[in-house]
Simulated assay, not measured.
Amino acid sequence: MTEEIISIKNVWVYYGKIPVLEDVTLTIKQNDFLGVIGPNGGGKTTLLKVILGLIRPDQGEVKVFGKDPREGRRLIGYIPQYTRFDPNFPINVFDVVLMGRYRQIFKGYTQKDREITLDALETVGMDEFKDRQIGKLSGGEIQRVFMARALVREPKLLLLDEPTASIDPEMQKHFYELLADLKNRMAIVLVTHDISVVSTYIDEIACLNRRLFYHGKTEGGLGMLEDIYRCPVEMIAHGTPHRVLKTH
Results as ranks from 00 to 15, higher is better:
120 A>D: 00
120 A>N: 02
120 A>G: 00
120 A>Y: 00
121 L>F: 06
121 L>W: 04
122 E>R: 13
122 E>K: 14
122 E>N: 10
122 E>I: 12
122 E>P: 05
123 T>I: 12
123 T>C: 07
124 V>A: 06
126 M>P: 05
126 M>L: 15
126 M>A: 13
126 M>V: 13
127 D>L: 12
127 D>Y: 12
127 D>M: 12
129 F>D: 06
130 K>A: 11
131 D>C: 05
132 R>T: 10
133 Q>W: 05
133 Q>T: 10
134 I>A: 06
136 K>I: 09
136 K>T: 13
136 K>C: 09
136 K>V: 13
137 L>I: 11
137 L>C: 06
138 S>E: 08
138 S>H: 12
139 G>W: 08
139 G>L: 10
141 E>D: 11
141 E>Y: 08
142 I>C: 05
142 I>W: 03
142 I>V: 10
142 I>A: 09
142 I>K: 10
142 I>E: 04
144 R>S: 12
144 R>P: 06
144 R>V: 06
144 R>K: 15
145 V>L: 09
145 V>T: 09
145 V>A: 04
145 V>Q: 01
145 V>M: 07
146 F>E: 01
146 F>T: 01
146 F>W: 11
147 M>K: 11
147 M>C: 12
147 M>P: 07
148 A>N: 10
148 A>Y: 02
149 R>E: 06
149 R>H: 08
149 R>T: 04
150 A>E: 03
152 V>H: 02
152 V>G: 01
152 V>D: 00
152 V>W: 01
153 R>W: 02
153 R>L: 04
153 R>D: 01
153 R>V: 06
153 R>M: 08
155 P>H: 00
155 P>E: 01
157 L>F: 04
158 L>Y: 00
158 L>D: 00
159 L>D: 02
160 L>K: 00
160 L>F: 08
160 L>I: 07
160 L>Q: 00
160 L>G: 00
161 D>H: 09
161 D>Y: 05
162 E>D: 07
162 E>R: 04
163 P>Y: 02
163 P>V: 06
